[in-house]
Design a binder for these strands. Structure first.
Length: 571
RNA sequence: CGGGAUAUAGCCUAGUGGCUAAGGCGCCUGCUUUGGGAGCAGGAGAUCGCAAGUUCGAGUCUUGCUAUCCCGACCA
C-alpha cells in the first residue's frame, strides 16, 4: 500500500479535542479515526484495518470455544422490548421511529431480545443445546452524555455473544470458559485488565463480571482488596462495617441553633463523624423513601434501588418535601406520614447512641438507637464502600480504583427465554426455559484503550497483531535504483507494508512513522547504493540494525514468525 | 436535563468597537534539498457557527438559537 493513496493524512499538531486521552488524540492525529459529531466516529482506512485485526483476534477465541458467528438486524420492533419489559425498566437510551406502515421500531441498544426471538424457533429439543453464537453489530444508544472519543459513543460496534443452556448449572459451568477467553483476548490486545463482580442492572439476570483496564481518568470505579483477590464494581462492593457497641443512653433533644454544615456541628459537639446519621429523600415509581445512613458513608443509588426493587430511584421534587411536612435541611425518620418508607443502612442498626435530625429546624436528637427510638420498613446495605474499609473476606484493606470497562459478561438466567416464551423439551418431554448468558466487548472502546495503553510521547505503538501494516518502507534520495528496489519490495510485501512514497524530507517521514505506530521501519537509504545494506528499526524496542538487502525478505519472514509466536498466549 | 466554557480557512491559533480579518501548519505550481517536520519564489483557500439587536461603524458588545468541549445521573 502506498501512503499517498491513503485518505486522511497525519496532522502535525495535536487535535483540539478537549482533554481527551492521548491515545485518542493520536488516533485522530495519525488518521485512524475522525469524529463526525458528538458520539459519532468514523473509521478511516487505517482505523478500519485495526478494527478488522481486532475482530480476527476475538473471532479466533469465539470459534475456539465453539461459537458461531451470526448477524441480527440493528433495527428491531419495539414489541420485543415490551415482551421483556425492558422498555420501561430504565430511562433506556432508545431511539424509536415508525416505519412506513406505522409500526414502532427501535435502533437496538443491545440485542438480547433479537437473538432470543431468532432462536425461539430454532431451539426445540435438549439436543439443540448448549448453543453459543456471537456477532459484530452496531449498537445505538442515545447516551445522556457521550464522552471521551471512542470510549462512549452513541453508535458503536460491539462483539456480542449469547449462549443458551439446558440449566443454570450448565450456564455456570460455561462461565469459566468465556471468562478465560476474555482474559486471553485482552492479553492479545496488550491491554492489562482485571475482572470485577458487577451489577447486571438493565441487562437483568443474576451475576456479571466486568473487565476493567485500570486508568486514572477512567469513569468506572471498582473496589479492590490489597491482600486477597476480592474485586467488585463499586455499585455492588461490600465491606466490613464497624459497629460501636456501648451502653444505650437515654435520648436527648439538643438545640444546635442555626448550624451551617455537619462538619461545623461535628466540631461544635466534639464527636466523630460516624456518630451522625444522614437522612435523604428519594423518589421512585413506588413512592417516597427516606434513607438513613451513617455520616462516614454515602448512599449507593444502585444498592438502594436493588433493595427497594425499583429501577429509577432519584432525587425528589420540592413539592415532595411539603408532603412530609419537613424541609430538606432537617429530614428525619421521626413523625413521617405512613406512606413514606424508611430504609436504614445496617451500619446504623449496629451502632449505638447516634445523633440525628429531629424533623424540627434547629433541633437534633442525641443518643438515638435503632429499634428503641425509631424503626425501619427495610434494613440493608445501602452505602458505598469507602477507601480504607476492611475486606469482609480476609480483613485486608480495601481501596478504590478507577478504570475503563472493556467487556462485560452476564448470567442472564432464564429472564429472556421466559419473557419471550423460548422453551425446549427435556428427556421427559417437559418444556423448560433455557438459561442464557450474554457477553459483550466494545470494539471502538477497546481500540482506544489499546491506543491508550500502547503509546509514547511520539505516537502510537501497535501490538504486532493489531498493526494496520506490519512494516513501513521508505527510500531516501532520488536514486532510481533505490526507487526501483522500494517498488519491488512493495510488490513482494503487498498488504504487509505501507510504503511511504511521498517526496518529503526524511524527518517528516520518520515523525509520521512514529505517530502511526507501525511495528517495523525499513529504510532504503545511505548505505544501499554502495554497500547494499538496508536499515531495520523496531518501533517498540528501538532496536536498529542494518542487513544485506538480499537477505531482507528472509529476515522479514523470520521476524514476522517471531512476532506471531510472541503474541501467542499459552492456553 | 442541570452547571460551566467555547465557536475565526482542512488543522492549530492571534485579533483590546475603527483601514482590505493576521500568522503558522497543511494544500497547489516551479526550482532546490533528502538521515530527523529543510529552503526560495509564487498561488488558492473565510459569507469570522446561525439569526436578530445596539452603534456612524460589530469577528469584538447584547439577546435568542445551533453545535462542540468540560463537570453530574447512564454504559461496552
Amino acid at each position: 500500500m502506498f501512503y499517498t493513496k491513503l485518505p486522511g493524512k497525519t496532522d502535525r499538531e495535536s487535535p483540539a479535542v478537549g482533554n481527551a486521552f492521548p491515545g485518542y488524540r493520536f488516533l485522530i492525529q495519525a488518521g485512524y479515526v475522525r469524529s463526525m459529531g458528538k458520539g459519532l466516529n468514523a473509521l478511516l482506512p487505517l482505523g478500519k484495518r485495526v478494527e478488522n485485526r481486532l475482530k480476527e483476534i476475538i473471532s479466533e477465541e469465539m470459534e475456539e470455544m465453539g461459537g458461531m458467528e451470526i448477524s441480527v438486524p440493528l433495527v428491531s420492533p419495539l414489541e420485543l422490548w415490551e415482551k421483556t419489559d425492558r422498555r420501561h425498566k430504565t430511562e433506556a437510551p432508545f431511539v424509536q421511529f415508525k416505519d412506513r406502515s406505522g409500526r414502532d421500531m427501535v435502533l437496538s441498544p443491545t440485542h438480547e431480545e433479537s437473538v432470543t426471538f431468532l432462536f425461539k424457533d430454532c431451539i426445540r429439543s435438549h439436543k439443540d443445546l448448549p448453543l453459543f453464537v456471537y456477532q459484530y453489530q452496531l449498537k445505538y444508544r442515545d447516551e445522556l452524555r457521550p464522552r471521551g472519543g471512542l470510549l462512549r459513543s452513541k453508535e458503536f460496534m460491539m462483539k456480542d455473544g449469547y449462549s443458551f443452556h439446558r440449566s443454570y448449572v450448565e450456564l455456570n459451568n460455561f462461565f469459566p470458559t468465556i471468562f478465560a477467553a476474555y482474559q486471553r483476548i485482552f492479553q492479545h490486545c496488550s491491554v492489562p485488565t482485571y475482572a470485577v463482580e458487577a451489577d447486571s442492572g438493565f441487562m437483568q439476570g443474576s451475576r456479571s463480571y466486568e473487565f476493567i483496564m485500570s486508568h486514572p481518568k477512567g469513569k468506572n470505579l471498582s473496589i479492590r482488596c490489597n491482600s486477597c483477590e476480592y474485586k467488585a464494581s463499586q455499585n455492588i462492593a461490600y465491606a466490613e462495617k464497624d459497629a460501636h457497641v456501648e451502653d444505650l443512653l437515654p435520648i436527648e433533644e439538643i438545640n444546635v441553633g442555626a448550624f451551617t454544615t455537619l462538619h461545623a456541628l461535628q466540631q461544635q459537639l466534639q464527636v466523630s463523624m460516624d456518630k451522625f446519621c444522614i437522612c435523604t429523600l428519594y423518589k421512585c415509581e413506588k413512592g417516597l423513601f427516606i434513607t438513613v445512613h451513617r455520616a462516614d458513608s454515602e448512599v449507593s443509588q444502585y444498592k438502594l434501588q436493588k433493595l427497594i426493587k425499583s429501577c429509577k430511584a432519584g432525587p425528589p421534587d420540592s413539592s415532595d418535601f411539603d408532603k412530609l411536612g419537613q424541609n430538606s435541611r432537617c429530614l428525619s425518620p421521626f413523625g413521617l406520614p405512613e406512606d413514606v418508607k424508611i430504609v436504614v443502612d445496617d451500619a446504623v442498626v449496629d451502632s449505638c447512641n447516634l445523633i440525628i435530625t429531629s424533623g424540627e429546624p434547629d433541633f437534633f436528637y442525641k443518643n438515638v438507637n435503632f429499634g428503641r427510638d425509631f424503626d425501619a420498613n427495610i434494613v440493608g446495605d445501602i452505602v458505598k464502600v469507602q477507601q480504607g474499609q476492611s475486606c469482609s473476606i480476609c480483613g485486608g484493606t480495601l481501596y478504590q480504583d478507577s478504570g475503563i470497562e472493556l467487556g462485560h459478561i452476564f448470567k442472564l438466567d432464564d429472564y429472556y427465554t421466559r419473557a419471550m416464551g423460548l422453551t425446549y423439551q427435556n428427556l421427559r418431554g417437559e418444556f423448560i426455559y433455557p438459561h442464557m448468558g450474554s457477553y459483550g466487548i466494545g470494539i471502538g472502546r477497546l481500540m482506544e484503550a489499546i491506543a491508550e495503553a500502547n503509546h509514547d510521547e511520539r505516537g502510537l505503538i501497535w501490538p504486532y497483531r493489531l498493526a494496520p501494516y506490519k512494516c513501513y518502507v521508505m527510500g531516501t534520495g532520488k536514486s532510481p535504483t533505490i526507487k526501483e528496489f522500494v517498488n519491488n519490495l512493495s510488490e513482494k510485501l503487498k498488504d504487509i507494508a505501507l510504503v511511504d512514497d511521498r517526496v518529503e524530507n526524511i524527518g517528516t517521514k520518520f515523525k509520521d512513522f512514529e505517530l502511526l505506530g507501525i511495528p517495523l521501519r525499513i529504510v532504503v537509504g545511505r548505505n544501499f547504493l554502495e554497500k547494499s545494506m538496508v536499515e531495520i528499526y523496531e518501533r517498540k524496542s528501538g532496536i536498529i540494525k542494518e542487513i544485506k538487502a538480499d537477505k531482507l525478505m528472509n529476515y522479514l519472514q523470520a521476524w514476522m514468525q517471531e512476532q506471531v509466536k510472541e503474541s501467542r498466549i499459552a492456553k
